[in-house]
C-alpha cells in the first residue's frame, strides 16, 4: 500500500503541471491585455500600466511563468479587486462551505443511487428496475439550477418545510466555533444541537439538489456493473457452493461491482464540482463557487483564476483519493504498484 500511494502521488505530478500551465495560459497568453483584465473594467491607463509592472507582465513569458509558479508556491493567488483581500485567504475561508455541501451531496446521492442500482440489477424487469431506468435517463437531463429552484419552490414556498435559501445559517443563528469549518461537525463537537439542526436545515435542499444531480451516473453504473458481476463466473461459483444469498450478493457481487462505481466517481466529482457553482448561486451559499461568480460579474480576474486552480487541484486530489480507495478494495491494483 505505501508503494501504491507513492506511485499514485508521482502520477498526479503531470496533471498538476498541466493545471498550472493552463491556468497561467488562461491569464497571460490570450488575446487582449492581461493587465487590463487584472485591473478591472474601470481602471485608467496609468493604473493598468502600474498593474502591468507590479504583476511582472512586462517581462518575457517564461520569466512570468517562473514568477507565477513562485507565487503559487508561496500560496499567493493575487488580490481581489472588489474586496481588496488576498484571494488565497478568501478561498481558504470559503472552501469548507463548498466542501461540506459537495460531500453531503455526494453522500445523499450514494445513499440513494447504490441501493437503487443494486435492487434494479437483482430484480430485472421489476418496478424498481423501471424506476431506476427512469431516474437514470431523466436525471442526466435535469439542469441542476432548475432542480434547485423547483425544490425551493416546493419545500420553501409551498410547504414551508425548508428555510429561505440564503446561506449556511438563518439570520438569527451564529456559526459554531471553527474547528473543521464544517458547520455540521463543528456544532456537534461544540455540543450545540440547535446550530446543528439549523445548519442541517439550510444544507438539506442544496445537498439534495446536488444529490439528485449525481444520482443518475452512479445508479446507472451500479446497475450495469452489478448486472455484469451477477452473471460472472465467480458469482455462479458462489451460488453453486450454496452460499447464503446475502453472502453472494454482498460479499461476492457487491464488493466487485463497486470497483467500476468507484472509477465513475472521478467523473461524478468533475460534474459535482461544476454543479456546485450553480447550486451555490441558487442557494446564496457562501462558498468558493459564489465567490468566483461574483468576481466574474465584476470582471475581477484574480479570484476567478484562483478558483479555477483550487478546483483543479481539489479534483486532482479527489482522483488520487479515488485511486487509493480502489487499491484498498482491489488487490490487483495494489500489485500493479
Amino acid at each position: 500500500m505505501p508503494t501504491l500511494i507513492l506511485k499514485r502521488l508521482v502520477m498526479t505530478i503531470p496533471s498538476l503541471i498541466g493545471v498550472v500551465i493552463v491556468t497561467f495560459l488562461l491569464t497571460r497568453a490570450l488575446p487582449g491585455d492581461p493587465a487590463a483584465y487584472f485591473a478591472g473594467p474601470a481602471a485608467s491607463t496609468e493604473a493598468i500600466e502600474q498593474i502591468r509592472k507590479s504583476l511582472g507582465l512586462d517581462q518575457p513569458l517564461p520569466v512570468q511563468f517562473v514568477d507565477y509558479v513562485q507565487a503559487l508556491v508561496r500560496g499567493d493567488l493575487g488580490t481581489s479587486l472588489t474586496t481588496g483581500q488576498p484571494v488565497a485567504a478568501e478561498i481558504a475561508a470559503r472552501l469548507p462551505a463548498s466542501a461540506e455541501l459537495t460531500l453531503l451531496g455526494l453522500l445523499v446521492s450514494m445513499a440513494i443511487a447504490v441501493p437503487l442500482g443494486i435492487l434494479a440489477a437483482t430484480r430485472p424487469g421489476s418496478m424498481i428496475d423501471h424506476a431506476c431506468r427512469i431516474v437514470t435517463t431523466a436525471g442526466v437531463s435535469l439542469p441542476v439550477f432548475f432542480t434547485g429552484l423547483i425544490l425551493v419552490y416546493v419545500f420553501y414556498y409551498l410547504l414551508g418545510w425548508a428555510p429561505a435559501p440564503l446561506g449556511r445559517l438563518g439570520i438569527f443563528d451564529s456559526p459554531p466555533p471553527t474547528i473543521t469549518g464544517f458547520y455540521l461537525i463543528d456544532s456537534l463537537l461544540a455540543g450545540d444541537g440547535t446550530t446543528f439542526m439549523a445548519s442541517l436545515k439550510q444544507l438539506a435542499l442544496p445537498a439534495l439538489t446536488l444529490g439528485i444531480f449525481a444520482l443518475a451516473p452512479i445508479a446507472r453504473m451500479t446497475r450495469a456493473s452489478m448486472l455484469a458481476v451477477l452473471s460472472s463466473d465467480f458469482v455462479r461459483t458462489a451460488r453453486a457452493c450454496g452460499l447464503a444469498s446475502y453472502t453472494v450478493v454482498v460479499t461476492y457481487a457487491f464488493r466487485n461491482a463497486m470497483l467500476p462505481v468507484i472509477t465513475t466517481l472521478g467523473m461524478v466529482f468533475s460534474f459535482l464540482l461544476g454543479a456546485n457553482v450553480l447550486v451555490e448561486k441558487v442557494f446564496a451559499w457562501p462558498g468558493i463557487g459564489s465567490f468566483a461568480v461574483e468576481a466574474l460579474i465584476a470582471s475581477d480576474f484574480a479570484p476567478v483564476q484562483g478558483f479555477v486552480l483550487t478546483m483543479a487541484v481539489l479534483y486532482v486530489a479527489l482522483n488520487l483519493a479515488i485511486d487509493l480507495l480502489y487499491g484498498l478494495i482491489d488487490p490487483r491494483a495494489r500489485m500493479d504498484a
Binding site: V22, L273, V308, M311
Partner: peptide
C-alpha cells in the same frame, strides 16, 4: 480532463 469541466469552461470564458 484534470479540470472539473464546467469550472474550466468558466475560466475560459472569463479569460477569453
Amino acid at each position: 480532463m484534470a479540470f472539473p469541466l464546467f469550472v474550466l469552461a468558466m475560466g475560459i470564458v472569463a479569460a477569453l
